[in-house]
Nucleic acid binder design. Structure first.
Lengths: 219, 219
DNA sequence: TCCTTATCTGACCGTATGGTCAAGGTAAGG
DNA sequence: CCTTACCTTGACCATACGGTCAGATAAGGA
């Protein structure tokens, strides 16, 4: 769907770009972007509404107009991340076997670590602190998701397509290995001496896939 | 040097157990323990000196007598963790090959994740926030450590004892997979429906070792 | 026993933070 | 135009926090 798609829209509407809805969406997006950065870099407790407002380019009071409280803003950030995170599962589903499915899943998760490192950090921080905000997501959406994929893996094992490994622990290993490149990106960068290049990222992907796929008996 | 070690110590010293040095050490230990817990649960920004003091069982002003600032206390906590962390490398060194060395290293790191989950979380949080406090450790001690072990792994590869994988990325995978059980322990517990039992921990260890060792061509 | 030194603690202070509010703008519909 | 509802903002407030300090208490040596 397009914006203002209807046929009866004003013939020559003012070229002044911003309609109410558009402005609102843009402002909210700027706030969420700034908040994700600040929450990732400072943690929930260390983040300040003032800093988020500055980074988003608006006064603090205005920020409170869009998000009533710091918690509400934080929740919005975490929920947004969770959606992206779940979306990576799509590649998992369409696969006929572990080599294709898990390989594509690793690729997708590595790509997320690269593109949304701050999101990954906020998620990690939230979980590390006991998931005060998204406990319900863990108990419902994530739990269902995990059960579903574990069942797929079990089926692949039963069909002799991969070695007999514990599906849950395999999933944990995938999450850990891929998210590590976001959450511990700073450490990796220091050890690497410089930011990871395109080639470095390719090597990382290949390394994770090689070890995991060979580790579950897929060649 | 020992405490009051000399031969001329009072014949019948008061049985009142606490000497100065003993009390100091015990108090400092209590503070560090409490601080580790609070920093892990709330993050640096979310932790308060008052809460740490309460948990350690002494007034806030007294806490400042032992640790001048919140930063100093935090630094002490992080450094303590780092030592434990490095110590796990011992098992790595004494090994003659990857099966023994990496297997023991995984066991050691999993044991640390189980026994010191809060320490692992504080470390993760510190690194995620850009290592403001222990940047120098990353650039010196950890970097040297990593280079040394990578060299060992390269030697094993050259000797045909394991598959040709990138040593650095292999180490990242080991760190990620083992520390995940501490840092994301809450998530794992929720998905598991209950705290991990002894058997669960054994299964986790075995799973990580099986996949990794098979993944690098060791059987 | 007395004196020095380390340890302990309640009360206090300046600052930074999350959040509020009332008044002033500005788009959109009638 | 003019009204209405939405949006923007500087100024303000109460609170909580890290940190200080002066005085109390207790330990150890001479």
């Amino acid at each position: 769907m397009k914006d203002t798609p209807e046929g009866d829209r004003p013939k020559n509407r003012r070229q002044s770009s911003a309609t109410r809805a558009e402005t609102r969406r843009a402002t909210e997006a700027a706030i969420l972007q700034a908040a994700e950065t600040v929450f990732a870099e400072a943690g929930f407790g260390g983040a300040t509404m003032q800093l988020i407002a500055d980074m988003a380019g608006l006064p603090k009071a205005n920020l409170h107009y869009y998000f009533a409280t710091k918690e509400a803003l934080y929740r919005a950030v975490v929920e947004r991340i969770f959606q992206i995170w779940l979306q990576a599962a799509d590649v998992f589903d369409a696969a006929s076997g572990p080599a294709e499915g898990l390989g594509a899943y690793i690729d997708a998760k590595m790509e997320i670590s690269r593109r949304y490192p701050n999101g990954s950090k906020v998620w990690a921080s939230e979980v590390m602190h006991g998931a005060p905000v998204i406990q319900d997501y863990l108990e419902t959406t994530l739990r269902d998701w995990t059960r579903g994929r574990a069942a797929v893996i079990r089926r692949w094992i039963a069909e002799g397509k991969m070695a007999d490994v514990n599906p849950e622990h395999l999933l944990y290993m995938l999450w850990a290995s891929t998210q590590h490149y976001a959450d511990f990106g700073h450490q990796i960068e220091v050890l690497n001496g410089q930011p990871l290049s395109d080639a470095d990222w390719e090597a990382a992907k290949r390394s994770v896939k090689d070890i995991v796929l060979r580790g579950i008996g897929v060649h």
